[in-house]
Nucleic acid binder design. Structure first.
Length: 94
DNA sequence: GCCCTGACAGCAT
DNA sequence: TATGCTGCCAGGG
């Protein structure tokens, strides 16, 4: 779990990572799914890291925090596609 | 141990 | 891209 948060902290400005990518980067993959666990972890302990740099594969941000995330991403210079993140250009892999 | 739920992903439509 | 369905897995009741 710490590793997830640690990795999120390493995400550079203007870049983002998808839940799946994080799970994958940490080899948390148990088939294809730790993405869910990553999401859960972020939901409960993401309050100390740049959580707005973590989005799902569609570039969508977490329910209830869209606005906030949008602002921060904008401030970070992340390429946005309307209300979503332009994954193609903002996706980052360690 | 069973069932439901969820900041998810991949594939088909 | 939107919607629907199916895997997959940890947590909680």
């Amino acid at each position: 779990m710490e590793e997830v948060l640690a990795l999120v902290e390493r995400i550079p400005e203007g870049k983002v990572m998808s839940y799946g990518a994080i799970a994958d980067a940490l080899a948390d993959r148990s088939g294809r799914n730790s993405a869910r666990q990553v999401g859960t972890i972020m939901a409960r302990h993401g309050g100390g890291v740049p959580w707005h740099r973590v989005v799902n594969s569609a570039g969508r941000m977490p329910p209830g925090h869209e606005q906030e995330a949008r602002q921060r991403l904008l401030a970070d210079g992340v390429p946005l596609k309307g209300d979503r993140v332009d994954i193609a250009r903002a996706h980052w892999m360690p």
